[in-house]
Computed example of a mutant assay.
Amino acid sequence: MGEDKDGVYCKVCGGIVPGTIDIKQILVDGKATGINHLEFIIDEVKKLGALSDAETKAELLKRAKELNFIPTKKEAAYAEGLLDAFKQG
């Protein structure tokens, strides 16, 4: 019998397995905000080569949304924070 899984979860408590979390912080509207797998997201966008700031923000946001909850109303602020982290790293 096959199992469909949406992720890796603890078999005891059902929570996320700590080893699968890699959270780094960015500033979103001046507040430190955790982003899971930030380094991975940045590395994936760097592989795309030279992009404009607008294209870079769109690619960063797209990947970040796959691994993190980002409120629709805050997408622009997250995109700015992700771009700042991208330029620093």
Rank of each mutant, 00 (worst) to 15 (best):
G30F: 02
K46W: 12
P71I: 14
T56W: 02
E66I: 12
I42D: 01
L82V: 09
D43K: 11
L61A: 09
G15H: 02
T33W: 07
H37N: 11
Q88L: 08
K87P: 00
K24H: 11
P71T: 08
E44L: 06
E66A: 14
K65T: 10
L48Y: 09
T56A: 10
N68Q: 09
S52T: 11
I41E: 01
N68W: 02
L51M: 00
V12Q: 15
A54W: 00
K87I: 03
H37D: 13
K57L: 04
E80S: 08
G2K: 13
I35K: 04
G49C: 05
G14W: 01
L60A: 14
H37Y: 08
E59G: 00
E80D: 14
G30D: 06
I16F: 02
E44K: 08
C13W: 01
D53V: 09
D22M: 10
L67G: 10
N68T: 09
A85K: 07
I16R: 07
D22H: 13
L82W: 02
I42V: 13
P18W: 08
F69G: 13
G2M: 15
S52R: 00
T20W: 06
I23P: 06
K73A: 10
K11S: 11
I21K: 05
D53Q: 00
I23F: 04
K46D: 01
G15R: 00
A77P: 08
L27C: 05
R63M: 03
L27I: 04
E55G: 07
A32T: 15
E44R: 09
V8S: 07
M1F: 13
L27W: 01
I70G: 07
I42R: 01
E3G: 14
I70L: 04
L67D: 10
T56E: 00
I21W: 07
L60S: 08
L27D: 06
G30Q: 03
G89H: 08
L51N: 02
G49P: 04
V28S: 05
I16G: 01
Y9R: 15
A77Y: 02
Q88V: 02
E55K: 03
L82R: 13
K87M: 01
G19K: 10
Y9M: 15
F69E: 14
E55M: 08
D4S: 15
V45T: 05
K11V: 02
E66C: 10
G7K: 11
G7N: 09
A77Q: 10
G81D: 12
H37L: 11
V12E: 14
A50W: 01
G19D: 14
V8G: 04
M1R: 12
F40E: 13
N36K: 04
L83Y: 04
G49H: 03
D53I: 05
K11L: 04
C13G: 08
A85P: 10
Y9N: 15
A77E: 12
K65P: 09
K47P: 07
G15M: 03
I41H: 06
A79Q: 06
P71L: 12
D6N: 15
V28H: 07
I41S: 03
E66P: 08
Q88F: 06
K87Q: 11
Y9Q: 14
L67Q: 12
M1Y: 13
T72C: 08
E59W: 01
